[in-house]
């Protein structure tokens, strides 16, 4: 940041927040927030999304770093799977106790 001392753009960028609800659990999207940089985004995420013991770990990611599918992708991306039942593991016995 040194050398950055001037007026100008002080708008905060948008961050996506992912929280892990327990050890070994997958991170889940909790929401988004504004912050000037990663450390403050992490602190804001703690205050906004984890202040009631909801998480044991937090990721923050600049929203602009996320590459997303678009509504137009729905056809080519997801439809062809509908008529390919052989992609689902249903033609052999599943070990007892295993849940899909």
């Amino acid at each position: 940041m040194t050398g950055n001392r001037k007026g100008g753009d002080t708008a905060h960028q948008l961050w996506e927040v992912f929280t892990q609800p327990g050890d070994g659990k997958p991170f889940e999207h909790a929401g988004s927030l504004h912050a000037a940089d990663g450390e403050l985004a992490l602190q804001n995420a703690r205050d906004v999304y984890a202040r009631r013991s909801e998480a044991v770990a937090i990721w923050v990611v600049p929203s602009k770093a996320i590459v997303s599918s678009t509504p137009e992708d729905v056809g080519p991306f997801f439809d062809p799977a509908n008529d390919k039942p052989y992609r689902h593991p249903q033609f052999y016995r599943v070990p007892q106790g295993f849940r899909m």
Binding site: M1, N4, R5, K6, G7, G8, T10, E39, L40, Q43
Partner: peptide, 21 residues
């Protein structure tokens, strides 16, 4: 946590813009 939060903000204000400094 209070120290971490306020220290990081003080650094960003001091080493921020002319006005925040």
């Amino acid at each position: 946590y209070h120290v971490r939060h306020s220290a990081e903000w003080l650094v960003r204000l001091g080493d921020g813009t002319e006005e925040s400094h």
